[in-house]
Amino acid sequence: MFEYIKGELVDLTPTSVVVETNGIGYYLNISLNTYSKLSGHKNAQVYLHQVVREDAHLLFGFIDASERSVFRHLISVSGVGANTARMMLSSLTPSEIQTAIVSSNVKTLQGVKGIGAKSAQRLIIELKDKLGKDTDIADISFSQNNTTKDEALSALVMLGFAKNSVTKVIDKLFAANPSASVEDLIKLALKQL
């Protein structure tokens, strides 16, 4: 129903963005990849995907149409919901997901929280041919930002992880990598949670 929204970035966190256009603020759920690309910008165009559930109408935002395409492919697989697909796009870039599926790399897919062996195999079986033909999936690079472990902690809690376990993992990772960005901390933490 909605293709994209263009406007001012009013609030940006690693898991969400509020885009104001024509006096209305739209709350969008985003991946860590999209957050990395939006950081430092005041205005942006964000591609949308709407999820209508019995209890909520949710908007998911993506930095480009290719990331949204990967998201839509992921949620087309039985057992993979919008939040799991967003978690995958926060742990891996769209091109890493495509490469893992096309090359039947179960281990890479299992590295994402919520994806077990059966889910990884189902993703590969159902999407290998579709993603193999999709050659315009862009590799989204991560920008380096001056952020703190508190932002990483907040983002992971917002993604649904228990605060106590996240705090331990983030503290350990930050002690080992004091110059790590919030994106790096979150990616490393997602692999350990």
Rank of each mutant, 00 (worst) to 15 (best):
E96C: 01
I97K: 08
I97T: 03
A100Q: 09
A100S: 12
A100V: 09
A100H: 01
I101F: 03
V102P: 00
V102K: 07
V102I: 14
V102H: 06
S103Q: 13
V106C: 08
V106R: 05
K107M: 07
K107H: 13
K107Y: 09
T108C: 09
T108D: 08
L109S: 02
L109V: 00
Q110E: 15
G111H: 03
G111E: 05
V112K: 04
V112Y: 02
V112T: 07
K113L: 08
K113S: 12
K113A: 09
K113W: 10
G114M: 01
I115G: 05
I115Y: 04
I115H: 00
G116Q: 01
G116S: 08
G116W: 06
G116R: 07
A117C: 03
A117D: 12
A117K: 15
K118R: 14
K118T: 12
K118Y: 05
S119Q: 07
A120Q: 04
A120L: 07
Q121Y: 05
Q121E: 15
Q121A: 05
R122A: 10
R122F: 00
R122G: 03
R122Q: 10
L123Y: 03
I124V: 11
I124M: 11
I124L: 09
I125A: 11
E126V: 14
E126G: 08
L127A: 09
K128I: 05
K128E: 08
D129E: 15
D129A: 15
K130W: 09
L131M: 15
G132E: 12
K133Q: 12
K133F: 09
D134N: 13
D134Y: 15
D136F: 00
I137L: 06
D139A: 14
I140S: 04
I140L: 15
F142T: 15
S143I: 14
N145A: 09
N145G: 04
N145D: 11
N146A: 13
N146K: 14
N146Q: 13
T148Y: 02
T148W: 04
T148V: 07
T148D: 15
D150L: 11
E151F: 06
A152Y: 00
L153E: 02
S154C: 08
L156C: 04
L156G: 01
L156I: 07
L156R: 02
L156T: 07
V157E: 04
M158V: 10
M158G: 12
G160L: 10
G160T: 08
G160C: 07
F161C: 01
F161P: 06
A162P: 01
A162G: 03
N164A: 11
N164H: 04
S165P: 02
S165F: 00
V166W: 02
K168L: 11
K168S: 15
I170V: 10
I170A: 02
D171Q: 10
D171F: 11
K172A: 11
K172P: 03
K172E: 14
L173G: 02
L173H: 04
F174R: 06
A175L: 11
A175C: 06
A176E: 14
A176M: 12
N177D: 12
N177M: 05
N177T: 14
P178S: 02
P178M: 09
P178H: 04
S179N: 12
A180V: 10
A180T: 10
S181F: 04
S181G: 07
V182N: 01
E183V: 15
E183H: 00
I186A: 02
I186M: 06
I186N: 06
K187N: 02
K187C: 00
K187W: 03
L188Q: 14
L190Q: 02
L190C: 02
